[in-house]
């Protein structure tokens, strides 16, 4: 247990754990610096220790921002820190849900949030049957993964069969289960909405000439006004996964907005200038509100 938890008369300690310093981490460090709060950056590759104690090379903290690039590293670190009294943003259960597309879909369905239909299959024949029932074209994704990696579009049964055969041959955890969704024609555009502390603070549209609209793959980001409908769906999605810092990816369809994915370690490097919203500053305020809550300092709460 962190020995200094709950003490008053000092600044709350906030730690950022990441894998190297990306533009997002640099913006967060600067946002905290502007608030005269030191954000202690820790590289996850330096962390070790016995699980019965607070991890070594991590300062004792009221709040830890978990931003490892690795899903499993992030979940493990969050569980470890929570077991020793830290408030982790996002908590391990949120990271677990958001890092697993099937778990995310189940959470969204459970809370009645509009989302794409999705199927899961565990073998070649069952994958083909799932595809037949879903209809073509469809999109295959690994259950765990991001940035558009290993995501494929099958326009017909033959393409799906080839993809499933390759997954079986390659093997490994990314291919242990196949997650399938109907392909939604959106003209190469989807929406990303940022939700902090339950409130949708900003959104972008991601435009691409490719059907995959990940900015990691070169999609262009432009600001998108947050209207009532978008805010309602994005905030409902965040609530469904219990995430306080999440990026919600949505498709605009004739049936309304549908949630595609919810990201628990959100990237926003392309979204500050494009939206004009100080996303890292709002994140810093939210985290400080959590930290001060832990110390009883009564700093302003984020609405």
């Amino acid at each position: 247990m962190a020995g200094s938890h709950g003490q008053q008369g000092r600044d709350p300690v906030v730690v950022l754990i990441s894998t190297g310093i990306r533009p997002e981490e640099k913006m967060l460090i600067e946002a905290f610096r502007r608030r005269d709060i030191a954000l202690h950056a820790v590289d996850d590759r330096q962390v070790h220790g016995t699980l019965s104690a607070w991890p070594q090379n991590v300062p004792h903290a009221e709040v830890v921002l978990a931003r490892s690039k690795s899903h499993w590293r992030n979940v493990t670190l969050a569980r470890w820190l929570e077991a020793h009294g830290a408030r982790v943003v996002n908590p391990s259960r949120v990271l677990e849900t958001c890092g697993d597309k099937a778990a995310t879909t189940l959470a969204l369905i459970g809370e009645g949030v509009p989302t794409l239909s999705a199927s899961v299959a565990f073998g070649r024949e069952s994958g083909l049957e799932a595809g037949r029932q879903l209809g073509f074209p469809l999109v295959l994704k690994p259950v765990v993964g991001s940035w558009g990696r290993l995501i494929g579009k099958a326009n017909d049964r033959d393409a799906l069969e080839l993809a499933l055969e390759h997954k079986e041959a390659v093997g490994g955890s990314p291919h242990a289960a196949t997650y399938l969704q109907p392909f939604i024609e959106t003209g190469g555009m989807d929406i990303r909405a940022f939700v902090v502390g339950g409130r949708c603070i900003a959104a972008i549209e991601r435009h691409s000439t490719h059907w995959r609209t990940n900015t990691a793959l070169g999609a262009r980001a432009v600001g998108r006004p947050v209207d009532e409908d978008l805010a309602a769906v994005a905030e409902a999605a965040a609530a469904a996964v219990a995430g306080s810092l999440v990026a919600v990816d949505l498709f605009e369809t004739p049936h309304g907005l549908l949630v595609n994915e919810v990201n628990g370690t959100m990237e926003f490097r392309n979204s500050v200038e494009t939206t004009g919203v100080n996303i890292p500053g709002i994140v810093a305020d939210h985290v400080m509100a959590m930290a001060s809550d832990g110390l009883g300092l009564g700093l302003p709460q984020v609405s």
């Binding site: 190297g20 690795s70 765990v144 991001s146 955890s173």
Partner: peptide
Amino acid sequence: VAPTPAEDWGE
């Protein structure tokens, strides 16, 4: 050189 992205890397 920065580490190569692993299977479970992402956001």
